[in-house]
Design a protein around this nucleic acid. Sequence first.
DNA 1: CCTACCGATCGGTAGG
DNA 2: CCTACCGATCGGTAGG
Lengths: 223, 223
Amino acid sequence: MSPRRSVADTRRTRASILARGLDLASVEGLEGLTIGRLAADLSMSKSGVLGHFGTKEGLQLAVVDEAVALFAREVVDRSEAAGAAPGLPLLLAQCEAWVSYLERDLLPGGCFFTTVTAEFDDRGPGPVRTAVAARNALWQRRVRQQVELAVAAGELPAGTEPEQTVFELTGQVLALNHARRLYGDRGAAGRTRRAMRRLLGLPVPEDGAAAVLAVLPAPPDRD
Amino acid sequence: MSPRRSVADTRRTRASILARGLDLASVEGLEGLTIGRLAADLSMSKSGVLGHFGTKEGLQLAVVDEAVALFAREVVDRSEAAGAAPGLPLLLAQCEAWVSYLERDLLPGGCFFTTVTAEFDDRGPGPVRTAVAARNALWQRRVRQQVELAVAAGELPAGTEPEQTVFELTGQVLALNHARRLYGDRGAAGRTRRAMRRLLGLPVPEDGAAAVLAVLPAPPDRD
DNA sequence: CCTACCGATCGGTAGG
DNA sequence: CCTACCGATCGGTAGG
């Protein structure tokens, strides 16, 4: 009487499609993520894959959700789990988690959001673009809040403009992804940490010394 | 006796394909640039388009060359045409031309190299990726030379690390492209100029005041 | 530069 | 979850 595939089986299949889809999309982009390729990689039929999401756009949005969950786990939660006080300490924990997330190459194509932003930023408005822009904006707001608290607490200079600071921090993260993906530059994470310390007005270690921003808990287990 | 299409006609057709192809590729990427779409836009047959380049990869490489020529004209040549002295003055002219190139939205998809780098940086080695990486490396070397000259001349602090400085300047340009394309942020160019001045240790104007880096000649006519 | 094709692959549907 | 399709589009070729 029980169905051939249980609810748990269905959930597992869906999860395996999304895991593979996220890997593929980080390299090929969300348009390059084709249903046929995904089905072949998973030894499934195309309709078996598509049945979980209805349309390709449904699949794309589910993959975006998967990427949002990964970023939340590895960057947002991890920076908060460090137990740093609001203001400059939490800001530094956020920056360290952000850099660490890229440095560890969690996805084969580097930062999913960078790949997809470059792919969709010139397209007309649509749900995929909206979802990606909203996630970016949310994270930048979180970082800006800590800059504001740090300025109010006198931990950063009084003239600091929070919006400008977040803009500059973001740029150094983009430079990290760029240098790592295009040139395989393994020293890029260190350069980003140094740049972040300097633009926040913190002392920068001598040339060659590591510029750790904050001590974080061990990263969560993958999958 | 004369051929139906002269050499000049052929060259004009080729130029019109490349102009349209560069526009399309800046938005859709070099894979999204399809021969059929290009042919339809130009009211040509697919084989008419392909005849000029042999294969799609040939077309992609020709479009990359076109983008290199645009960057050379608008950024490299223009920063040198300002007549600035080697060292800090020329470095500032380079930065201003670089920002201005993005600020003026010369291509509908923003910086061609940013789009294509994100698209190809995770692909295996190939001629397109190699050509793009080489152009990036060439420009960064040019900028680094001026940083080195500026340090030697005492125009920048003695402890300045040129490689690190170029990395940070690049990041601010990436942040500009990102903010402009994803959020339509029209103030991003100003933020990049302020960030560049600050990371070079130059005085930054009060909030709201324009932070011009250098005065450049009028941009060359397009096409 | 064209028409007229080719095999492969795309997203998606019908029906089970 | 499958097989068996559909029309559209892909890059590319033959022949003129």
